[in-house]
Structures are given as structure tokens and as C-alpha cells.
Design a protein around this nucleic acid. Structure first.
Length: 137
DNA sequence: GCCAACGTTGGC
DNA sequence: GCCAACGTTGGC
């Protein structure tokens, strides 16, 4: 099972707000980037990812799960982009800050460290295990 | 098809 | 608030 990372400004859409959506989660519409699109296309229902707060907090704050597979994004008039649905699984007991990720040499290749602007990122198994551990899981 | 100009994102 | 990085657009 692959792992992922979803990024959002908490003032726009926070992990708390996702958690409030419950077990059905919400559609992750509005992504307009081809790399992010390819990542979402590769997602399978049941795969898990991190949820990262950009700008404010700058930390991985929770675990999410893909609960509906890739399909067209109705908010995209061009029809080129799509979306998946995600739901909150659990918050991290100890959020893992960007600073902490950058400080760990084992995470030097992590997409979040290398290309912070990509809104939907892949996470390797090793990165997943390490960040979960750092986060207190 | 190349590349300069521009807009957006996000860390600092 | 600034600016670097990146993606997209459009002129040639």
C-alpha cells in the first residue's frame, strides 16, 4: 500500500475541519497541478496519507485515508483534473513540524522537504514509518 | 517548440 | 511582507 501527503492551509481547510466531516470525509477538489493529479490517480481506496498544515503550523498533524477513488473534479470546467475523497483517521499525538523533518537526514529526500509547493505528494514506506514514530504513533 | 514574463505558493 | 521556486501562459 502506498502512502501520501495532502497539504492545506489550515485557514482554508484544516485537519480539524476534515475530522468534523466524519467517516464519509470530503472530496479533495480544486487541485490544479498535474503532478498532484497523477498522485491522486494512483491512489487506491483504503490507502493512508499524512495531512500537512502549510503557512500556519507548518506541521504534519494527522492521518487521513482515501475513501473514494479518483474521478473527475466537477469544479474543473476544463475536465482535465480530478479528485479523490479523504477522511480523517486520527490526529498525530505529536505533530511533526517541517523544521523537525528538515532536521532529520533520513527525511532529506521527502517531497515535503524537497518540493514544499506540491499539494499532493507521495510518501515512501520508510518516510511513513519514521514520521509516524516521530509523531508518537 | 522555445523561453521570457507572469502569477501563485509557501517558507522565512 | 519579501522573495525564491515552480507552473503556466503566450509571443515569436
Amino acid at each position: 500500500m502506498a502512502h501520501w501527503l495532502f497539504k492545506s492551509e489550515p485557514s482554508v481547510w484544516s485537519f480539524e475541519r476534515l475530522a468534523a466531516c466524519g467517516a464519509d470525509g470530503t472530496d479533495w477538489s480544486g487541485v490544479r497541478n498535474h503532478s498532484a493529479k497523477l498522485n491522486m490517480q494512483a491512489m487506491l481506496v483504503g490507502e493512508q496519507g499524512f495531512f500537512y498544515h502549510s503557512n500556519e503550523g507548518k506541521a504534519i498533524v494527522g492521518i487521513v485515508e482515501v475513501c473514494k477513488g479518483y474521478r473527475p473534479d466537477p469544479t474543473d470546467a476544463s475536465g482535465k483534473f480530478g479528485m479523490v475523497d479523504i477522511r480523517a483517521v486520527r490526529p498525530l499525538p505529536r505533530p511533526v513540524t517541517l523544521e523537525a523533518a528538515k532536521a532529520d537526514a533520513r527525511l532529506a529526500g521527502m517531497a515535503l522537504v524537497v518540493n514544499a509547493r506540491l499539494s499532493v505528494q507521495p510518501v515512501t514506506d520508510a518516510e511513513w514509518r519514521l514520521v509516524c514514530e516521530m509523531g508518537g504513533l
